[in-house]
Amino acid sequence: MSETDRRAPRAAPQGEAAGTPGRRAGQCCAVRDLVKTYPAGRGAGAGAGPVRANDGITLDVRQGEVFGLLGPNGAGKSTLVRQLTGLLRPDSGSVEILGHDVVRHPERAARLLAYLGQESSALDELTVSLAAETTGRLRGLGRAQARSQAADVLTELGLEGIAGRPLAKLSGGQRRLACFAAVLVGERPLLVLDEPTTGMDPVARRAVWSAVDRRRAEHGVTVLLVTHNVIEAETVLDRVAVVDEGRVIACDTPGGLKALVDGDVRLDLVWRTEAPLEVPAVALLAERAERTGRRWTVRTSPEQARELVAAVTTGPAFAALDDFTLATPSLEDAYLKLGGRHGGLAK
């Protein structure tokens, strides 16, 4: 893959988005050439220009898929999502959701999608059940309907036990789950979830993803998920767009992205104290491994990895070795190979 392959996503044809109002069957979101610039922050120091949070983003989300935006903090994911939800007006470019132009009619977004933002301050002082019910009413449901849907969703997510407690008094994960419950009351064909499972325990995470799956199977709901969690991205996403520095640097299935680094494997070595540099294989490895404290990581071909494993699991090297793992490439490896900045993704 050449550099131009990667950096040329903005060459997208615009005819459709700018011209006819129709959308292709099966298409949920169409984003074309989205640019959003923030003025230079006050704390940014002299000479810092405006920040291009979104720098020509183009992507398509199909109906019924779980589509992910993966990238480190500050990559521009939330900015993109805020434009999709009508909260933020782009400088240029177009956003079409289920055939509606939400740049021209931002108020329509609320009638097409449900949004889970990162903040819960509007709901913090309400009880879980009232938060869900009120959100349903504000989503246009009648009182009885909102109440029964809220009760159903709380049961589905296993929140009945804390239905009477205020959100502010819950743990971070529980509060997040309660906000997610509010998102589900008053059904919408598109759910936009900004890091929905932050702080959740595995039980709560599972509740979220089964609720999403159920809605997908029964109503063909589309999910646009913002995450920086690679494991989650690999397991729940149908397709993923990797966002870095305001651009989409790749977009494919998690498997497709991993195929970019196919053939390579990752060898992680953890030394007890110091690495035994007197062993020739280890000394050689020291030059090419990515070293963080006692942990060394090296990406290499399976044959070489086999030799390395053989070298470090015998003699003095093995005595100095605390742990080692040999793994097939993850989405994180793909992301790094694509040129994303290091270290921003949660494992």
Partner: peptide, 23 residues
């Protein structure tokens, strides 16, 4: 695998009407 060639716009499925807005 990359977005360098954005989803086909010429030979795609037929256009669909905009989805109805929830009340």
């Amino acid at each position: 695998t990359l977005l360098s060639a954005p989803p086909q716009t010429t030979a795609g499925p037929p256009p669909a009407a905009p989805a109805p807005l929830a009340p």
